[in-house]
Amino acid sequence: MLIFSVLAAAIAPGVALLAYFYWKDRYDTEPLSMVVKMFLTGVLIVLPIMIVQRGLMIWLGESPFAFSFIVSAGVEEFFKWFVLYHIIYNHTEFDEPYDGIVYATAVSLGFATLENVMYAFGEPATFGTLLVRALLPVSGHALFGVFMGYFMGRAKFQEGRKMRFFLWISFLFPFFWHGLYDFIMQSVPRSWIWLIVPFMFLLWYRGIRYVNRANSVSPFRLLKREEEVKS
């Protein structure tokens, strides 16, 4: 019974955050099967990420900067970006800018959920530690997914240099914020709470702005308004 409770507590934050961003899609909800597929893809990339990270840690040592920006943010965001680009970017279901956010958060939260489960069973986990992880690393991964998906959504509906520019930004932007988050956690262990709380507020502020912006440029927005007027 205890194992089930710990497992549920470890999984619940990721599922809840995914449901939140899924329901934020105002105009053309994505097929749930595709969202679940991308969530499970996020789960599957945990193992190769861990293998690459282990090799890099042996090579680069224990530098907080190297760990934060290369081992953690660099490897994790690259794998997420890679599977999004090769599985979703040219998919027919990716037909409005907000879809990038839905699928990117699905991949990110699949990764974060398995990571959270491994943490819960790898160390003595209490309700307090799982709550802190829900508020910090799990929601952090969700927001890095929002950033990645927003700019990938912008790239999808551009051409030429603008498309390439936003594709680069869709990796570099979450990479920077993820690396900065980890660097704060690594370099100021005694006073991190005073930095990470406002930092998380900033991430949520930017994330919600991107959610609203992506919805505001949906090609289905006018169609929905016309349907509402006719009805």
Rank of each mutant, 00 (worst) to 15 (best):
M1Q: 08
L2D: 15
A8C: 07
A8Y: 13
G14E: 00
A16T: 14
L17Y: 15
L18P: 00
L18H: 07
Y20G: 10
F21M: 04
Y22K: 10
W23H: 08
W23D: 10
Y27S: 08
P31D: 03
S33K: 15
M34L: 12
M34V: 11
V36A: 14
K37W: 06
L40M: 12
G42E: 09
V43N: 13
I45V: 15
I49K: 03
I49G: 02
I49C: 11
I49L: 04
M50G: 09
I51P: 09
I51H: 04
G55E: 13
L56A: 06
M57D: 12
M57Q: 13
I58R: 12
E62G: 08
S63M: 08
P64V: 13
S68L: 02
I70M: 05
V75F: 10
E77R: 05
E77M: 05
F79D: 10
K80D: 01
K80W: 06
F82T: 06
L84Q: 01
I88P: 01
Y89P: 10
Y89D: 07
Y89L: 11
H91D: 14
H91M: 04
F94V: 05
V102M: 05
V102L: 07
A106W: 00
V107L: 00
S108P: 02
F111K: 05
L114H: 08
L114F: 13
N116T: 02
V117H: 07
M118I: 15
F121C: 12
P124S: 07
A125Q: 01
A125H: 03
T126F: 02
G128T: 14
G128I: 04
G128H: 09
L131D: 08
L131G: 08
R133N: 11
A134G: 12
L135R: 05
L135H: 06
L136G: 01
P137K: 08
P137Y: 04
P137S: 04
H141R: 07
L143V: 10
F144C: 03
G145D: 08
F147C: 04
M148D: 01
G149T: 08
M152H: 06
A155C: 11
A155Q: 07
Q158G: 12
G160E: 00
M163V: 01
R164D: 12
R164H: 15
L167Y: 02
L167H: 02
W168Q: 09
F173A: 15
F173K: 08
P174I: 05
P174M: 03
F176N: 01
F176C: 03
W177S: 01
H178D: 03
G179I: 00
Y181G: 00
D182P: 02
F183H: 09
R190Y: 14
S191W: 10
S191I: 15
W192T: 13
I193W: 10
W194V: 14
M200T: 04
W204H: 08
V211H: 06
R213M: 12
A214T: 11
V217D: 10
R221K: 15
L223R: 14
R225S: 09
E226W: 11
E227P: 03
E228C: 06
K230N: 05
K230D: 04
S231L: 14
S231P: 05
